[in-house]
């Protein structure tokens, strides 16, 4: 009896080891196949990704709520401590803004008259979808966020995502109830920009730090620290004039941009629909639409 068990073991163990090794190789191959498939058939992989995210979004939604409530309490407590100083600052601000308002109204009226004179075609109306960010995903290797609005709410791939401060990123893929935002700081992000004052054009490339860099600059470009950077609207990827950030440093290593939006404090975002088709649609069509700008 004992002998039989031993014999069985003697045969079974190498077979088991072989089976294990085979299963292991199969898993490795499956992972490699996934990577290759992701390069070849982007649409299918995107679809799978958004399906899974869709399924998980309700959980993330529930988990992120108590935390947001808690952090709001902390914020309120901090705000109470500063209320007096803030009040004084606000009164001053208000006086200054009243002057600005007067100036703005004057300019608006002037603008209207000038537009009439030129017979100017106004740009397409902006519509937007507001959404809550439910996950700040990616870790050290990818900068992206997940929001709880998808195609059901009218969100489409390629649309610009902004907060009150400025451009946050663009919609990288979208499911029915969820969407993934690729932040402008991500390694794969490229945004056509223009320096607001000098109108120098360039591409802002993310590098997974909080300071994206400018690439493809004209050789004679003069750029100084503190210059404001906005989207240029080229290639039809983003509407023109969205604030992005300021030039943080200019050195031999390159030009670094400090974005206005800090991802730490983002709770709600707006997804803009400017009637542009984005870079993923037909390029000629997109540049045709963009031609007005």
């Amino acid at each position: 009896m004992k002998d039989t068990t031993r014999t069985v073991n003697r045969i079974a163990q190498p077979v088991k080891a072989l089976a294990n090794r085979f299963a292991f190789m199969a898993l490795i191959l499956a992972a490699v196949a996934l990577i290759v498939l992701g390069r070849v058939d982007v649409a299918t992989i995107d679809n799978v990704r958004s399906q899974v995210t869709d399924a998980m979004v309700p959980i993330l939604n529930a988990l992120s709520r108590p935390k947001i409530t808690l952090s709001r309490w902390i914020d309120q407590g901090q705000a109470l401590l500063k209320v007096r100083a803030q009040n004084i600052a606000l009164i001053k601000d208000r006086e200054r803004l009243m002057q600005w308002e007067a100036a703005a109204r004057k300019l608006e009226a002037e603008n209207r008259i000038l537009r009439d004179l030129l017979n100017f075609q106004p740009e397409p109306a902006i519509s937007f979808v507001s959404s809550r960010v439910v996950a700040d995903a990616g870790g050290a290797f990818v900068h992206s966020m997940i929001m709880n609005a998808g195609t059901n709410a009218g969100v489409a791939k390629g649309q610009a995502v902004v907060t009150g401060d400025g451009l946050l990123g663009r919609v990288a893929n979208v499911g029915r109830r969820s969407g993934r935002i690729l932040l402008i700081t991500d390694l794969n992000s490229r945004v056509p920009i223009v320096i607001e004052s000098s109108r120098v054009r360039a591409i802002m490339a993310g590098n997974n730090t909080n300071r994206p860099r400018l690439i493809h600059l004209p050789t004679d470009a003069v750029i100084a620290r503190g210059d404001r950077v906005v989207t240029s609207g080229h290639a039809g990827a983003f509407p023109p004039g969205l604030p992005i950030g300021i030039v943080a440093s200019v050195s031999d290593m390159g030009i670094e941009i400090l974005p206005f939006v800090t991802h730490d404090r983002v709770e709600f975002v707006r997804v803009l629909n400017f009637g542009l088709h984005g870079i993923i649609e037909d390029l000629s069509q997109a540049s045709g639409v963009n031609g007005h700008n």
């Binding site: 292991f24 898993l27 490795i28 499956a30 992972a31 490699v32 196949a33 996934l34 990577i35 498939l37 992701g38 390069r39 992989i45 799978v48 990704r49 899974v52 995210t53 998980m56 996950a135 995903a137 990616g138 870790g139 290797f141 990818v142 992206s144 997940i146 990288a172 993934r180 690729l182």
Partner: peptide
């Protein structure tokens, strides 16, 4: 687990999976 980490992180699908399996 690797696959789910890939999906959530937004890394190219399969990258973390392959590394974890290895």
């Amino acid at each position: 687990i690797g696959l789910l980490q890939d999906v959530f992180c937004g890394t190219p699908l399969g990258v973390i999976t392959l590394v974890y399996i290895t």
